[in-house]
Computed example of a mutant assay.
Amino acid sequence: MLLKYRLDQLHTRARNNRWMQYFTTFTRLVLAVGFLFPGYVKIIGERFTDLHNNQPMGRYLEALYHTGYYYTFIGYAQIFAALLLLIPRTVALGSLLYLAIIFNILILSLAVRFEGSLLTAPLMVIACLYLLCWHYERIKFILPFNTPPVVTTAPDKKFPIKFFALVLATFLTVGFTVTHIFNLMPRNTLSDCETQCDDSENPAACKIFCESIHNKGVYLDEALKRYEHSVKTQSNAND
Rank of each mutant, 00 (worst) to 15 (best):
M1K: 14
M1H: 14
K4T: 07
R6V: 08
D8L: 12
Q9P: 00
H11A: 15
R15K: 02
R15W: 02
N16C: 04
R18M: 04
W19S: 01
W19N: 01
Y22K: 00
Y22D: 08
Y22C: 02
T24A: 05
T24K: 06
F26A: 08
R28M: 02
R28F: 05
L29K: 08
L31D: 03
L31T: 03
L31M: 02
A32Y: 00
G34D: 08
F35G: 06
F37D: 09
G39F: 11
Y40I: 04
K42G: 14
I43A: 05
I43W: 04
I44P: 04
R47A: 14
R47F: 11
T49M: 05
T49H: 01
D50V: 11
D50G: 15
D50N: 15
L51T: 04
P56R: 01
P56C: 05
P56S: 10
P56G: 03
P56F: 07
L61M: 10
L64S: 08
H66A: 05
H66G: 00
T67N: 10
G68I: 06
G68R: 15
T72P: 00
A77Y: 07
I79G: 12
A82E: 09
L85Y: 10
I87S: 11
I87P: 14
R89K: 15
G94D: 11
L97R: 11
Y98W: 12
L99F: 11
A100W: 09
I105H: 09
I107Q: 05
I107F: 06
L108H: 04
L108Q: 09
S109I: 07
L110E: 06
A111Y: 10
F114R: 01
G116D: 00
S117R: 02
L118W: 04
L119P: 05
T120S: 15
A127Y: 00
L131D: 10
L132N: 02
W134P: 00
Y136M: 11
Y136R: 14
I139D: 07
I139N: 08
I142Y: 15
N146W: 07
P148V: 02
V150T: 06
V150Y: 01
T152W: 14
T153E: 15
T153Q: 12
A154N: 15
K158T: 12
K158M: 14
P160E: 07
I161S: 07
K162Q: 10
A165F: 08
A165H: 01
A165S: 09
L166N: 10
L168H: 11
T170Q: 02
F171H: 08
F171M: 10
L172C: 02
T173M: 14
F176M: 14
T177F: 04
T177H: 14
V178R: 09
H180R: 05
I181Y: 13
F182I: 14
M185T: 11
R187M: 09
T189L: 01
D192N: 00
E194V: 05
E194W: 06
D199P: 07
S200T: 06
S200V: 03
E201K: 06
K207Q: 12
E211G: 13
S212G: 06
H214F: 03
H214S: 02
N215P: 04
L220C: 09
D221L: 12
D221Q: 13
L224R: 01
K225C: 00
K225G: 03
R226I: 13
H229W: 15
S230G: 08
V231E: 10
Q234Y: 09
N236A: 05
N236P: 08
N238D: 09
D239V: 14
